[in-house]
């Protein structure tokens, strides 16, 4: 009922504006026109002496309706929008009051649930978008910043190239088998993380270990070494020059001590990062020692969820909404 009253009052207030002859029924129109002309003639007597035809005076009147002087004795009643003689007088307004009223508790609940839902939805979308933007900057423009083509040998002696990184996410780690404590710890973390990803999120990641010590790490040694950590880890080795190139491409620092005697025992100094590569074989993030197996799995999962293939990304850039990305 409240809505009914409000809308009626609103109608009354807006009356002069609503007087658009072409939407009103003909009977109403004729009555209106008669009144209109009578008022307008009065008006022209006061304001502008020159007469004009009916059409233009009607349009002018519409603009300045409120400024007309109407004697109090002639003040018209508020106009109803209901056609004269129609029996279904207030049917329209009554129907409107059946729907949700603005002050009702139903509206309150609707507002709260919709608001909360939208809040979480947009927050999730924003997080995803931020991650994608971050990935995009890591991928770099033009030539990739990290990663690149390579040709190495896996632990079974089969060739393994950068093409094997395509169509799956890979986690790449550089190290050497004679590493005293950090590499084994990191590889244990890696295998735990792989298990979490698999069991909790059903995500398969291709784990890759690339040796920085090709002189000592033959495919056989790699096989023996890596099997103790996780059966899925692929160990890569190759000629010294190839290893040097891939380390350069992945911005991995490594150094073997100079002037080594053959058979002499030594350590290799190297950077300790996991490199997460996307399905296009492109670098998206580096994970350091500050991650635990759980946080690392969580982080990788977020990246996998937010991943958008290169093809779609390029299409988006050319699309209408490119400014969003």
């Amino acid at each position: 009922m409240l809505a009914n009253r409000v809308s009626k009052r609103l109608l009354v207030g807006l009356q002069p504006v609503f007087k658009t002859p072409h939407v009103l029924p003909s009977s109403y129109l004729s009555a209106q026109n008669a009144r209109k002309f009578s008022i307008s003639s009065k008006c022209y007597q006061e304001q502008s002496p020159e007469p004009s035809d009916g059409e233009s005076s009607a349009s002018k009147k519409k603009d300045e309706g409120s400024r007309y002087y109407v004697p109090s004795s002639q003040k018209r009643k508020p106009l109803s929008r209901v056609t004269i003689g129609s029996s279904t007088d207030n049917a329209r307004f009554r129907r409107a009051s059946d729907t949700i009223e603005f002050s009702s508790w139903k509206a309150g609940i609707l507002f709260v649930t919709l608001g909360t839902g939208l809040y979480f939805f947009f927050r999730y979308q924003k997080e995803k978008m931020d991650l994608q933007r971050n990935e995009e900057s890591n991928r770099g423009y033009g030539k990739p910043l990290i990663g690149g083509p390579f040709n190495l040998i896996d632990q079974d002696g089969n060739p393994f190239s950068s093409d094997n990184l395509l169509n799956k996410f890979s986690l790449v780690y550089f190290g050497f088998t004679h590493c005293p404590d950090i590499c084994p710890d990191e590889l244990d973390k890696m295998s735990a993380c792989l298990d979490i990803l698999k069991s909790k999120y059903n995500i398969d990641i291709q784990p890759i270990f690339i040796t920085c010590d090709p002189a000592r790490d033959s495919p056989e040694i790699l096989k023996e070494y890596l099997y103790e950590f996780h059966k899925d880890i692929i160990g890569l080795t190759g000629p010294y020059e190839d290893i040097k190139n891939i380390c350069k491409a992945y911005r991995v620092y490594f150094s073997t001590p100079p002037d080594l005697k053959p058979g002499q025992d030594y350590l290799v100094d190297h950077s300790i990062y996991f490199y997460l590569m996307d399905k296009d074989g492109e670098f998206i993030d580096a994970l350091g020692r500050n991650y635990t197996e759980e946080t690392m799995a969580e982080h990788i999962k977020n990246h996998v969820d937010a991943f958008v293939s290169k093809e779609i990304r390029e299409k988006r850039k050319q699309g209408w909404f490119s400014f969003l990305y």
């Binding site: 004679h178 005293p180 404590d181 084994p184 023996e224 070494y225 103790e228 058979g263 002499q264 025992d265």
Partner: peptide, 24 residues
């Protein structure tokens, strides 16, 4: 063995068990 005698490289794999002994 392998650190002092290179010819014995083969049976000196960097295994978890060996590491554990060393760490202890």
């Amino acid at each position: 063995a392998w650190s002092s005698k290179p010819e014995e490289n083969k049976d000196s794999l960097p295994l978890r068990s060996n590491r554990k002994i060393c760490w202890e």
